[in-house]
Amino acid sequence: MIEALGVRAIRGGVEVLRGITLKAGRGEVLAIIGPTGSGKTTLLRILDLLDPPDGGRVLFDGVDLSEDERARFLARRRMAMVFQKPTIFNLSVEKNVAYGLSMRGVSGPLARHRVRSILREVGLSGYENRRPSSLSGGEAQRVALARALVTEPDLLLLDEATANLDPRTAETIEDLIRKAVRREIAVVMATHDLDQARRLADRVAVLMGGSLVGLGSPVEIFETPGSEEVARFVRRRSGW
């Protein structure tokens, strides 16, 4: 599905991603963990084709997207990303959730039906006419997730999507992620929450200082980490 091959990124003269190679396939959740500033968000933005890599390539369904703007646009239409701090457009909740559909020319009763159905799934039935300013942080994040899921993406990218949320809202969002994965979509999620990575991920990638220092199943990463560096990070974070 999505594949990074030797991806490098330079920001302000500093190399923040150093040749990252990883992939996520259909029906798989890949969690990217690592300390703050390790390059998780930069990597997600490159995978979402928002920023070009300064080196290496990004492949989507085996197609190299480096050169072709049209291919990038078409690939982006099969993806959706939820950011840590959701930006809800200054429109009603219904129009926010319908945004991706309207960009694809889907409107009218079909769009309305899909919007109502996804709002029910995220527990926001009856919020259709609410304005962004009236939403709590958790509600805004659920609107952002609904807005991403309603487009039925093949690849869902989540950047700390449950950070700063209460446990109940976080659980709702985790359930939605599990449900989405059952539809055979690929999920790449950056998270600080190692327990969440353990609960949701099929594979875990550990980023440190812009380098990929670990990649494996949750059992491999959390119980038999391949290096002292990874072991120190997962144990400190898990409070072992």
């Binding site: 933005r45 979402d48 928002l50 646009f73 982006r76 239409r77 993806m79 959706a80 990303m81 950011f83 701090k85 959701p86 930006t87 457009f89 200054n90 429109l91 945004y99 991706g100 960009m103 694809r104 807005r147 991403a148 487009t151 990218l157």
Partner: peptide
């Protein structure tokens, strides 16, 4: 409006022109 609106629009499948329309709407 800030770059987050543009990023959100693009990541939800907007074309460049549609993203500009969204920013102008905001």
């Amino acid at each position: 409006v800030g770059p987050a609106v543009r990023d959100s629009a693009l990541s939800l499948g907007a074309s460049r022109f549609q993203a500009i329309q969204t920013i102008m709407g905001e």
